[in-house]
Design a protein around this nucleic acid. Structure first.
Length: 271
DNA sequence: AGGTTGACCTGGACGC
DNA sequence: TGCGTCCAGGTCAACC
């Protein structure tokens, strides 16, 4: 599932491949996938030059001179980069062709919580409600934004208006590393322990970005043979491993639900 | 206003 | 084989 590290890897790859490229064609194959802006406005991208590709939260943002195109990856968004003429995946919703024959396709099978937004300079779209990026937030700001919350710590980590970029995988991993039970109320956790969580979160995100970045090299600018970008497997310690042994104490990992999400934790290591 | 819940969507895993 | 059922999960609207 694309969270901050996956979006970061995709943005870096697209930035290297597309910065300065000029759009020569736009094809919106599924009209309702454009959540902000109009098909007419989207077509005006033709002739425009990209000025960079960045990430914000879990979103990939392609910058043009005055416009931004935001890709909300949702559950299954898979930007794909390649040459014109490759076979078309049936769930391809948007195609941007660039001068020289490079093509960016946005493929998304399960269209949950996903879409594209064409933003003018005065529009924020889905970026407007986001808290600070989780890979860059300071310890003091992390503590300040969590202070006094009466919700489960995992629910707070998943709340994109508190901090942006954390999803189900990295919240479980960070809470395991910090030794905090996901159901614990934020205001019942000491500042020291929240500080430890901040460090654990920054560390796991940095490791995941490094693992993703290692799949992208100058000689092989795309993540796999089909041109799909930015998906990789960091060795998860708890996510998806319920019923297996805790890598630290060998207790059996348990599964519960927090904020409607499947949650895995170690009943012994996480208090 | 903070917190909680369910709808959205489809592919894949599983059971019979 | 094939059908049915369930699960995954990010975001947002609607509720308390």
């Amino acid at each position: 599932m694309p969270e901050l590290p996956e979006a970061e890897t995709i943005a870096r790859t697209l930035s290297a491949a597309l910065s300065g490229a000029v759009v020569s064609g736009v094809r919106l194959r599924r009209r309702d996938f454009l959540k902000t802006g109009t098909p007419r406005a989207l077509r005006r991208l033709v002739g425009m030059r990209t000025t960079g590709v960045r990430r914000r939260g879990k979103c990939v943002v392609i910058h043009f001179d005055r416009l931004r195109l935001v890709l909300q990856l949702g559950m299954s968004g898979r930007p794909s980069l390649g040459r014109i003429g490759r076979p078309l995946d049936r769930h391809t919703h948007l195609i941007l062709t660039f001068a020289g024959g490079l093509q960016l396709r946005y493929v998304n099978a399960r269209r949950i919580a996903s879409g594209v937004h064409l933003l003018s300079p005065d529009q924020a779209g889905p970026l407007g409600q986001l808290g600070p990026d989780a890979d860059a937030i300071s310890r003091a700001e992390f503590l300040r934004r969590l202070h006094g919350r009466n919700t489960a710590i995992k629910a707070a980590l998943l709340n994109q208006s508190i901090l942006a970029g954390v999803g189900n995988i990295y919240s479980d991993e960070a809470l395991f590393r910090a030794g905090i039970r996901p159901t614990r109320r934020v205001r019942r956790i000491s500042r020291e322990l929240l500080g430890k969580l901040h460090g654990a979160l920054r560390a796991v995100l940095a490791e995941a970005i490094a693992a993703g970045g290692s799949t992208v090299t100058a000689s092989n600018p795309f993540a796999d043979a089909d041109g799909r970008l930015g998906y990789f497997t960091l060795a998860h310690r708890v996510y998806g491993r319920y019923g297996q042994a805790c890598p630290s104490c060998r207790s059996t990992l348990r599964r519960t639900a927090v904020a409607g999400r499947t949650t895995t934790y170690c009943p012994r290591c996480q208090k």
